[in-house]
Design a protein around this nucleic acid. Structure first.
Lengths: 106, 106
DNA sequence: CTGAATCCAACCCGATACTG
DNA sequence: CAGTATCGGGTTGGATTCAG
C-alpha cells in the first residue's frame, strides 16, 4: 500500500516544521523534537527520504555531519498541513467540549 | 493527549465521505466500506461520535434502525480533507516515482 | 556525532463467532 | 439489523545499549 504519504504519524509533521527554514543536522532535530529517540527519528527521516520529501547529505568530516533538507516536493506538504492546522485552531476547542460532554454522559 | 482528531486512521475519512450527502444506516456504511468488520466500523463511529463529528440516532423499531449523520462540526472536516486530496492528486505520482527510484538504489 | 541493534509495550486492525 | 466478545497478528514507537 504505497499511499498516502505518512504525515499522520507521530513525528513527520514536526520534522517538516523543523526543516522549514533550511537544512538541519540530526542533533539539531533532536532538540526541538524532545523525547524522540534516535531510532524513531531515523526511521521517520528514512521514510521521508524514500518518499522524496527530504534529502540526506553526509559530509565526510570528523566528527561526522549529516544534514537533512526539504525537497521542493517536501515543501508542497505545507499546504495541506496548513489546512489541518487551521482547522485545529478553529475547531479544536469544539472537539474538546464534545469530549467533555461525552465523558459526562458516561 | 486529546488532539488532534483522528482522521489519519484507516476508516474515518472514508466514513466522512459516505456521510457527506446525508444520514446513513450502519449496514449502508458497510457496503461502500467493503471489508470493514462491524467491530472496527463501530469503533470508528464511536470515536467520531465522541469527538462531536457525527450523531448516532437509534429508532426503536423492529428490525432495529440506527442512523449516523454528520454534525456541522463534522462537515468542517471536509476543508482540510480536500486539501489533502488535492495534494495527492497533484503530487502522488511524484511520490511513486521517488519510491521507485529509491528502490532501485537499494 | 550519527546512528544501528535489540528488546519490548501498546495500539490498530482484522477474523470469527455469537446476541438482542 | 446492529452490533458485542474474543482472539491474535502486524505495525509503531520507546528504552536501552553499543558502534563507527
Amino acid at each position: 500500500m504505497p499511499f498516502p504519504v505518512r504525515v499522520g504519524d507521530k513525528w513527520t509533521a514536526k520534522i517538516l516544521v523543523c526543516l522549514r527554514d533550511g537544512p538541519r543536522r540530526f542533533s539539531e532535530l533532536q532538540v526541538p523534537l524532545a523525547r524522540v529517540t534516535p531510532k524513531v527519528l531515523t526511521e521517520s527521516l528514512r521514510a521521508m527520504e524514500r518518499d522524496g520529501m527530504i534529502t540526506r547529505t553526509v559530509y565526510d568530516e570528523m566528527p561526522p555531519r549529516v544534514e537533512y533538507e526539504l525537497t521542493p516536493l517536501g515543501h508542497t506538504l505545507f499546504e495541506p498541513l496548513a489546512a489541518s492546522c487551521a482547522w485545529n485552531a478553529e475547531h479544536g476547542e469544539a472537539v474538546a467540549r464534545a469530549r467533555e460532554e461525552h465523558a459526562q454522559r458516561v
